[in-house]
Design a protein around this nucleic acid. Structure first.
Length: 479
RNA sequence: GGCUGCGUAGCAAAAUGGUUAUGCAGCGGCCUGCAAAGCCGUAUAUACCGGUUCGAUUCCGGUCGCAGCCUCCA
């Protein structure tokens, strides 16, 4: 029985789809004026994992994640670069897809873009005006009137009278209430714009999500997700817009993931303390990042540091080490482990516990390797398949363990969405390593332990760890 | 000021009204020429103060500390 924490009710609820066996899920995606950072990666990985699990449970899922490809920051950045805004967003959409692909994030079913949804945005604004939820301000912009929506604040638990308007930013004189927000913004000279009943302009940020989500999934759908910081005002405003326009309930269940932090502080663009995915990828392989994200619960804060990433790498090595040397048959997942795994995931997608099941499985594989190979193979198959549900452990173990430090080369620009980023291994070549291993085997045969140990130590300094097997062979991996 | 949420062993991170989380690091042992990996065993915990209870880390109240939102932000 799947339970999910609902921000709207502040508790875990048994998930009940609106329509038997079907799920509609909308997640707020990126504003594409820069590269994705680890915080964005968390959203992608978390909701990808949610999507994978829904499908594993047999739901017919429609996963929609939008792209905001027009807003003030995009215009500003394009101006700074002396670049057409369409060109700018195209570049960063490509880059985002590369990052996603490297993190084993499966593409959403629908990826609507604001600039391709202008007609439905305008239609929704017209409805809001007609119903008296919106007005045209003195500057020509169309605003949403928050006071006309009784439930305003129900998601974030805020009351209009408690909010501190103008505390950090000047209040726009064109607004009737300081918390009214823009639905349609009039274009200044040389700004990108679209024709509308109110003049040339562009949509406000919040309206695009209301328009795109209801357009793709219907007026009322199951799940809406995004980062914690979108709770207010973005999601609050989406509710006001959508419910104001349709008169129907908008979303049953709101999911919000926690922040990635750096030194106990939110990683964010404005603080400038962010690490882009491609930056981190220079040092860590993508699966390590994914594992790092999944090793804590999606609603908890996640502290980013080298120590954490290194630990994730070590942990992942342990899982791959268990898989090493075992032929993994195409057998079903062992029921007891599947049960434990699902119990964890059913509890609000508790990936941390799900991962711990993988470690238990790894121990059992290791234990049975020498005594009961058949059993070990079955366990390994379960380990690999359960890992697959989380989007990890799909590499060849030998290849993974020989991978070590790599440089992942992303080719921004116009790479095929499907292409996996090529990795470049740092350190001695396989040929050189094998040569050393042979020399050491000879030394061992001559019982020249000093020589054998010296060779091993030298390799270790270069990040190569040797492991002697009982049958006299030596295998190696990169640290 | 208003509203969220959090405080678990050396580190990270789950869970639970009474019973092993898990990973890394540590300690002891097995294995090994010695290692590595693996296996077995083992230590260290629930911010503080009250309350409810036969029993609380878990529920309730308070204190302290931390983070987030109340501009844009995943």
């Amino acid at each position: 029985m799947l339970k999910i924490y609902n921000t709207l009710t502040r508790q875990k609820e048994v998930f009940k789809p609106r329509s038997e066996g079907k799920v509609g899920m909308y997640v707020c995606g990126m504003t594409v004026y820069d590269y994705c950072h680890i915080g964005h990666a968390r959203v992608m990985v978390v909701f990808d994992t949610v999507a994978r699990y829904f499908r594993h449970l047999g739901y017919d899922l429609t996963y929609v994640r939008n792209i905001t490809d027009i807003d003030d920051k995009i215009i500003q950045r394009a101006n700074e670069n002396g670049e057409d805004f369409n060109h700018l967003t195209a570049r960063f959409i490509d880059a985002m897809h590369e990052d996603e692909r490297s993190l084993a994030v499966l593409p959403p079913d629908i990826e609507p873009r604001a600039t391709q949804s202008i007609a439905s945005i305008i239609a929704m604004i017209e409805t809001l005006l007609a119903k008296g939820h919106a007005y045209i301000g003195s500057n020509g912009d169309v605003f949403y009137a928050v006071e006309k929506f009784n439930d305003y604040g129900k998601l974030s638990g805020k009351k209009l009278e408690d909010l501190q308007a103008g505390e950090r930013v000047d209040v726009d004189a064109a607004k009737q209430n300081p918390f009214d927000f823009v639905l349609w913004k009039m274009a200044k000279a040389n700004e990108p714009s679209w024709p509308s009943p109110w003049g040339e302009g562009r949509p406000g940020w919040h309206i695009e999500c209301s328009a795109m989500s209801t357009c793709c999934l219907g007026n009322h759908f199951d799940i809406h997700g995004g980062g914690m910081d979108l709770q207010f005002p973005h999601h609050e405003n989406e509710i006001a817009q959508s419910e104001g326009a349709t008169g129907e309930k908008f979303v049953n269940l709101w999911m919000h993931n926690g922040f990635v932090r750096v030194n106990e502080e939110k990683m964010s663009k404005s603080l400038g303390n962010f690490f882009t995915v491609r930056e981190v990828l220079k040092q860590y392989r993508p699966e390590i990042i994914r594992f790092f994200i999944l090793s804590s619960h999606y609603r908890s804060p996640l502290n980013y540091s080298d120590e954490q990433l290194n630990e994730a790498a070590t942990a992942l090595n342990r899982l791959y080490t268990a898989l090493r040397g075992v032929t993994v048959p195409d057998s079903p997942i062992l029921p007891d482990y599947q049960g434990r795994f699902e119990q964890a995931m059913d509890d609000d997608f508790n990936t941390a516990v799900a991962v711990s099941v993988l470690f238990d499985l790894a121990r059992e594989v290791n234990k049975n390797k020498s005594s009961d190979l058949k059993r070990a193979e079955q366990l390994a198959a379960s380990l690999r398949r359960l890992g697959g549900l989380l989007g990890i452990l799909q590499n060849d173990p030998e290849v993974w363990l020989k991978g070590g430090d790599v440089e992942v080369r992303l080719q921004s620009g116009h790479m095929e969405y499907e292409a996996y980023p090529p990795t470049v291994v740092i350190g001695p070549s396989e040929e050189a390593i094998n040569h050393c291993i042979q020399a050491r085997l000879d030394a061992k045969k001559a019982k020249n332990w000093a020589m054998a140990d010296q060779i091993r130590d030298q390799l270790k300094e270069q990040g190569i760890i040797l492991e002697d097997a009982p049958n006299g062979t030596t295998s190696w991996r990169r640290a």
